[in-house]
């Protein structure tokens, strides 16, 4: 039971909004000590794990390229480009990205996407610009809510697409685990059983995205009527948008 002290620290830390780096370091050290390791050995384990997991940090390598293009007006160009497609709405832009991301991940192309290389420089500006084209300047909370939806689409498309690809880490992990327990299975069988969930994920999230357009229209129309909005009206709209997007 004492080994769960780390989990407790993490939950309390996130609850009381202590700096997550501190929380995680404290949880790691407490877990190691509770598991019977000497303080020096805990430090060794922490250092070894951090160095072994350096590949997680590689996403940041793309930042110089993205920054360079932002400096040259990539977001502005994307917004102008979306303005030419009258049929584009936030929901439809995100729906298209969901489909592309999920199909690409299912083909093993998980690197076609990601928050640093696709969401921030390309997809989020498109989704915002599509809403602006139909509703005029957006209030900041709406802008933020649209961005959060864009990040969500990237995650959902990735998670429920990649497991259809036979050489992805999770499929290989399942295969290895089952083999250790005396069950031999081909990766293709595992990938096949990921398809029903992939379809369900797409249907559920696509429905939400199409409803998002309607809710955006409704809450932004209310916002326009209240112009120039008094402070409380603005707060009300904010709440509405938050509810609509929750």
């Amino acid at each position: 039971m004492l080994t769960l002290v780390g989990v407790l620290i993490v939950i309390l830390g996130f609850l009381f909004r202590v700096n997550p780096l501190l929380v995680v370091a404290a949880a790691g050290i407490a877990t190691g000590l509770a598991g019977g390791l000497a303080p020096g050995a805990v430090l060794d384990a922490l250092g070894r794990a951090f160095i072994e997991n350096r590949y997680v940090g590689i996403v940041w390598l793309v930042l110089p390229v993205i920054g360079l293009l932002e400096r040259a007006g990539l977001k502005e160009r994307t917004q102008a480009l979306i303005g030419r497609f009258r049929a584009a709405t936030t929901g439809r832009v995100l729906l298209l990205y969901l489909a592309v991301r999920q199909v690409a991940a299912a083909l093993g192309l998980t690197s076609l996407g990601g928050h640093a290389q696709m969401v921030r420089p390309l997809v989020a500006p498109m989704a915002e610009a599509a809403a602006e084209m139909h509703h005029g300047t957006l209030p900041l909370p709406t802008r933020h809510a649209i961005r959060a939806q864009t990040a969500a689409v990237d995650n959902i498309g990735l998670f429920f697409g990649e497991d259809i690809f036979i050489a992805i880490g999770s499929i290989l992990l399942i295969r290895g685990f089952l083999e250790q327990n005396g069950i031999l299975v081909q990766p293709i069988e595992l990938a096949l059983w990921a398809i029903p969930t992939a379809i369900a994920a797409f249907v559920i999230h696509a429905t939400r995205l199409l409803l998002l357009d309607r809710r955006l229209a409704r809450s932004l129309a209310a916002h326009a009527l209240a112009a120039p909005p008094a402070a409380e009206a603005r707060e009300e709209v904010r709440q509405e948008v938050r509810d609509a997007l929750a």
Binding site: G6, V10, G28, A45
Partner: peptide, 12 residues
């Protein structure tokens, strides 16, 4: 990810 490794080590 490092915390996950420590959790695994301690059998959480």
């Amino acid at each position: 990810a490092s915390l996950g490794a420590l959790f695994a080590l301690a059998g959480v």
